[in-house]
Design a protein around this nucleic acid. Structure first.
Lengths: 338, 338
DNA sequence: GTTAGCACTCTCGCTCGTTGAGTGCTAACG
DNA sequence: CGTTAGCACTCAACGAGCGAGAGTGCTAAC
């Protein structure tokens, strides 16, 4: 056994192979490298190097007389290099949000669509959970026919509303008075506290029982929805463009796995570094064994963190994807920062 | 040339062929019919009848020694029969909504998902346009950090909100006073009128300019969104389950055509009869030449009409689909009726 | 260490029988 | 006259066999 190091030349060759394969999706041969990338070396030399790289586990041959295909280990090396050396974010991508932003949900969905559009991959965006939201304001807005719209706003700026029935004797002034009273009593409490308090009030069974009930159910809903991370998916059928998924069965398995968002949630919610790349089995999602999942974190307010990402075949232009994600993540951090 | 009528026996045979083909997606031969459906007739007799039916354009042969496949004309005949004879709605489907309904949008999306789930096809639901909505109430809800949530409610029960910045000197009482004033001035006006009126106010450039601006933009947005029919799509990748779309290219074309919702909108917005079935080219959508689109209308309030539907290969269990759509349409009419 | 040359391997695409399903036609039957 | 049995015929699907081409590993020379 000879030396086990990956010297600079091997690295260059490996990179060339990866980049060619990302472009063509075809096994790449020694001649291709010798002519297109390392013109100073002959194909025979490349062959020797490739043979070494194969032995080290960076390359694989679909069959003996085909070219080489980069292994997941190769992508890993390549990506680690990118992450270390850094890369420029793609500023074009930053202006891609057309806004029309209503609230967090809207930002997040439009981010998912933007990423999918920009990268032509499947995009995932995690909306971070917001523990311990405190009520900031409660308001009843009159609606036609004895109904009212109950709006709850929390200190983090989350808004949720629901339509409830109220006595039709209550005009807008009365509703405002109630709103005021409720806000006074409930402002500053966490969603959980509110639910507990209302459990007590509810027994009184006054004329406002329906209102209180509405608040309780809305608070419960908000808490449930905010206690768990939510993942939004965009461009799910972009995957069909790639030869890796020309097999319909595989495509279907992929799309079905996407539906079950819990696995993705698990992956995205433990997001630490600014960028992460899960190649192949590293993601732990069985139906995405051949996929790479590239993710970037973003900051929302103080302390809360979310993540955005892209899912596609392991053969992926990592540099480009990373720089796009970087840009969107920055835009998102800015947008949600305040 | 012999007689051109489709007698009862031909009809029965045709129906058998359709039903078998819907099940198997395989060309059906004379022997199959003779053994599984018309046991009193020999395969030779069936062959003669099939030959007639082919001449009349109801059947086609993929190649000379394959069985027969029903033509679009055959489906048309079959469906017309179903529509004339009537069918029972599938009551199981009616209870499928788990509610959690916030407002119209929610009803409509959950309907789309329910239909997709129930039929295993791609579901489309049209939210009808609502011309001439009149403002019923305007309300500013205080939010942290000098922001406010502006909520507009119309007489049809549509709700829209947006976050705007306001002077942070305005407390909840002040906001209520403004809300009251605005409601007084604007209630009963159409969205269009409101926009016109605000054009005048805006020139005054008072401290509330931002509020008025917010109202105007929200009204514009509501009007834009309600003036055109909106189509929601659910279960778009169900199509991948069908052998007709085992070709990825076809699947991709289909999904891309789905994205361009305008063609579907055109189809759904001219919905007259309670049920309609567009087979093959009848839909006028090029990328859905081999599809059938089954739609059902529903009633929302007085006069407004929407439509729900299912898109899949022309080979479709029409009876089942129609009865499911019937049920959902009824449920929807009930839910949105009041 | 690099390179030219060469034998070798294996996929891909092609052709060519073979098989089997299903038809159309004809002649016989009730 | 409608129905049926029988039979020849057609054609897709499948698999085997073959040649071409791409790409390799190895060896020997530079």
């Amino acid at each position: 056994m000879r030396e086990a190091g990956v010297d600079a030349r091997k690295r260059r060759i490996l990179q060339a192979i990866i980049e060619d394969y990302v472009l063509t999706a075809l096994p790449v041969g020694s001649r291709t490298i010798s002519r297109k990338y390392e013109t100073s070396l002959s194909s025979a030399t490349i062959r020797n190097e490739m043979s070494d790289l194969e032995e080290m586990g960076y390359l694989a041959q679909p069959h003996v007389s085909a070219g080489r295909v980069p292994s997941h280990k190769a992508y890993r090396l390549y990506v680690d290099g990118l992450l270390q050396n850094g890369f420029a974010v793609n500023d074009d991508a930053k202006g891609f949000f057309t806004s029309q932003i209503r609230q967090m949900e809207d930002v997040v969905t439009s981010a998912a669509h933007a990423i999918a559009e920009l990268t032509h991959y499947t995009a995932v965006v995690m909306m971070p959970k917001q523990l311990e939201q405190r009520i900031s304001c409660l308001q009843l807005v009159p609606m036609p026919r004895g109904a009212a719209l109950l709006v709850i706003v929390t200190d983090t700026g989350a808004i949720r509303d629901t339509v409830i029935k109220v006595s039709d004797r209550l005009d807008s002034d009365a509703l405002f008075a109630i709103s005021r009273l409720l806000t006074e009593r409930l402002a500053g409490r966490t969603l959980q506290e509110v639910q507990e308090m209302l459990g007590v009030y509810a027994r009184m069974d006054g004329p406002d029982a329906r209102v209180l009930e509405g608040i309780a159910s809305l608070a419960a809903q908000m808490e449930k929805q905010s206690a768990q991370d939510t993942v939004i998916i965009g461009g799910s059928h972009n995957i069909l463009s790639y030869p890796e998924y020309s097999d319909v069965e595989k495509a279907r398995a992929f799309l079905t796995a996407l539906e079950k968002k819990d696995q993705l949630t698990r992956l995205l919610s433990h997001h630490e570094a600014p960028f992460m790349v899960h190649i192949g089995g590293e993601s732990g999602i069985p139906d995405m064994q051949d996929c790479a999942i590239v993710t970037a974190g973003y900051q929302v307010g103080k302390g809360h963190r979310g993540a955005i990402g892209v899912i596609g075949p392991a053969r992926m232009p990592y540099l480009q994807v990373l720089s796009t994600l970087g840009a969107v993540s920055e835009a998102l951090t800015e947008l949600l920062g305040e």
